[in-house]
Simulated assay, not measured.
Amino acid sequence: MSRYVVQAGWDDVPHLSEQAKADLEASYLPHEREARRLGMPGLGEGAIYPIAEKEVVCDPFPVPEYFAKAYGLDVGWKKTAAIWGAWERETDIIYCYSEHYRGQAEPSVHASAIKARGDWMPGIIDTAARGRSQIDGKRLWDLYVQEGLDLHKANKAVEAGILEVYQRLSTGRLKFFSTLQHTIAEYLLYHRNEKGLIVKEDDHLMDALRYLCMGIKIAKTKPIPRQRISSGIADSTAGY
Rank of each mutant, 00 (worst) to 15 (best):
Arg3Thr: 14
Tyr4Arg: 12
Val6Asp: 13
Val6Ile: 15
Val6Trp: 13
Trp10Met: 06
Val13Asn: 13
Gln19Glu: 14
Gln19Tyr: 09
Leu24Pro: 02
Ala26Val: 02
Ser27His: 05
Pro30Met: 05
His31Phe: 12
Arg33Ile: 05
Glu34Ser: 15
Arg36Trp: 10
Pro41Arg: 01
Gly42Val: 04
Leu43Met: 13
Gly46His: 15
Gly46Gln: 12
Gly46Arg: 03
Ala47Ser: 14
Ile48Ser: 10
Pro50Glu: 07
Ala52Gly: 14
Glu53Ile: 11
Glu53Leu: 09
Lys54Val: 09
Glu55Gly: 07
Phe61Pro: 01
Val63Asn: 03
Phe67Asn: 02
Ala68Gly: 06
Leu73Asn: 12
Asp74Leu: 02
Val75Glu: 06
Val75Gly: 04
Trp77Arg: 13
Lys78Val: 10
Ala82Phe: 00
Ala82Gln: 00
Ile83His: 05
Trp84Ile: 04
Gly85Lys: 03
Arg89Trp: 11
Arg89Thr: 11
Thr91Arg: 04
Asp92Val: 02
Cys96Met: 04
Tyr97Asn: 10
His100Lys: 10
His100Val: 11
His100Gly: 12
Gln104Val: 14
Ala105Leu: 03
Ala105Met: 01
Ser108Asn: 11
Ala111Ile: 14
Ala111Tyr: 02
Ala113Met: 14
Lys115Trp: 00
Ala116Asn: 08
Asp119Ser: 08
Met121Arg: 01
Gly123Ala: 03
Ile124Lys: 01
Ile125Ala: 07
Asp126Trp: 00
Asp126Arg: 03
Asp126Leu: 00
Ala128Tyr: 09
Arg130Trp: 05
Arg130Phe: 11
Ser133Lys: 11
Ile135Thr: 15
Asp136Pro: 00
Leu140Gln: 02
Leu140Ser: 00
Leu140Asp: 15
Val145Cys: 08
Gln146Ala: 12
Glu147His: 11
Asp150Ile: 07
Asn155His: 13
Lys156Tyr: 03
Ala157Leu: 05
Ala160Phe: 01
Ile162Ser: 05
Ile162Glu: 09
Glu164Val: 11
Val165Asn: 09
Val165Gly: 03
Gln167Ile: 13
Leu169Gln: 13
Thr171Leu: 06
Arg173Trp: 03
Arg173Cys: 03
Thr179His: 07
Gln181Asp: 15
Thr183Ile: 08
Thr183Lys: 02
Ile184Asp: 10
Ile184Tyr: 04
Leu188Tyr: 03
Leu189Tyr: 07
Arg192Pro: 00
Asn193Ile: 06
Lys195Gly: 09
Lys195Asp: 12
Lys195Ala: 06
Gly196Asp: 11
Leu197Met: 14
Val199Arg: 05
Lys200Gly: 05
Lys200Cys: 04
His204Val: 06
Leu205Pro: 01
Leu205Gly: 03
Asp207Glu: 02
Leu209Ile: 02
Leu209Lys: 10
Arg210Asn: 07
Leu212Lys: 09
Met214Gln: 15
Gly215Tyr: 02
Lys217Ile: 06
Thr221Pro: 05
Ile224Asp: 13
Pro225Arg: 04
Arg228Gly: 15
Arg228Trp: 12
Arg228Asn: 15
Ile229Tyr: 14
Ser230Asp: 07
Asp235Trp: 08
Ser236Gln: 08
Ser236Arg: 15
Ser236Glu: 12
Tyr240Met: 08
